[in-house]
Amino acid sequence: MNKIYGLQGAPLLSPEMKILELIETDPSLVSVFQRLNISLPFGDMSILQMCERDGYSCAMFLMLCNMHISPTYRVDATLLTRDMLPELVGYLRASHRYYIGHMLPHVARHLDDILSHCDNLSRSLFSRFYNEYMSFLGEHFREEESEIFAIVEGVENNLAMDIGRLEAPHGDIDDRTNDLASLVIKSLPEAVPTTLRCQMLKDIYALRDDLRVHSRIEMHLLRPLVEKFLKTEER
């Protein structure tokens, strides 16, 4: 009998798995391909073959996919290598672009549809709330890129990383995203058609879940990598 581990650290995916099987495991993983700009079609290609074709570390790709599909997945720190740092930061930057360029405008378009059914007061309040939410996220991403990613990418400068910086504002992001959903459920005028309201909720929860994965990747993949390979300090 094979040794059976708990969920933590367990390999859920394997390099030999076909890309089709991988996506069938969790269709939300198509967004990982989108972020990494991996080109289709894959034919019968395995994960390993695709990574070799496109020059990605297969171990890192599997870690990212595991992070997406399992909230309890934790990496085995002994498998982390220094060259994973720039690759991971590249992925996190690509995720920021994916939020700013794709997910947030997608929600905004649905919000516009909804607000066309609302009175002036609701329209103005919801628009302002969403614009502030987008600004808040944009500012958070900019800070991460300048205060964390830049240090990771400039390792030769030997700057110390404030490790606590990785934890600080993620709870606020989750709160604001949940607030948006709560307001759509509780406070949008009755005139808004149910189909639009439900579509909007699906978009918001998809965004929230993806942001949670992003936060988990920073906490449970970037942080152990930084702790293993960079000089750190706790402010």
Binding site: L125, F126, F129, E132, Y133, D172, D175, R176, N178, D179, L180, S182, L183, I185, K186, S187
Partner: peptide
């Protein structure tokens, strides 16, 4: 209310 942020509470 299901709302935590100041911005969300203001809208509410």
């Amino acid at each position: 209310t299901g709302i935590r942020s100041v911005a969300g509470l203001t809208v509410y």
